[in-house]
Amino acid sequence: MESSEFRYVYYLVQDYLKYILQEPELGPAPSRVAHVLRNSASFLQKENEEILKPCLDTLDITSVDAARRIFIQVMDKEFDDGNTNWGRILTIFMFGGILSKRLQEHKVQLTGDNKEQISYFITEYIINTKAEWIDANGGWENGFLPMFEEK
């Protein structure tokens, strides 16, 4: 049984991926944090997708398993200097969105099961490596939200 913290992040990741994949049944964001995350991470994604494209083209993102491996490798590199900040946390969501779109472009059918797997490995990474930092830096409501809301 996952912790309530895990379920909270899982629902943020799921909501962001649904938003990025433009799922037709998508309603309004289920919370303020989810709403701000949709806006700020997708803005960042639009801004950087083209810049990252030459690097991404070298990666073989053709299955959910490959996406998981690449995600872990990229994250390990991103955080190997030991620094964490809310901007970098935002890039975790952004990169999850980029990977999901890439899978779609490679004609990988993003079934409900596949999307759950992707949301799961992203959440697992955040919970296993960033939960303490997030908690020590105000959490989603008091750390993330004041920084990115209405900006």
Binding site: L59, K77, R88
Partner: peptide, 20 residues
């Protein structure tokens, strides 16, 4: 490679962190 993407993401994250 994944290392290049990781390094780029760190820079993008640090940049957005400074801007906000």
């Amino acid at each position: 490679t994944s290392s290049q993407v990781g390094r780029r993401l760190a820079l993008i994250g640090d940049d957005i962190n400074m801007r906000y």
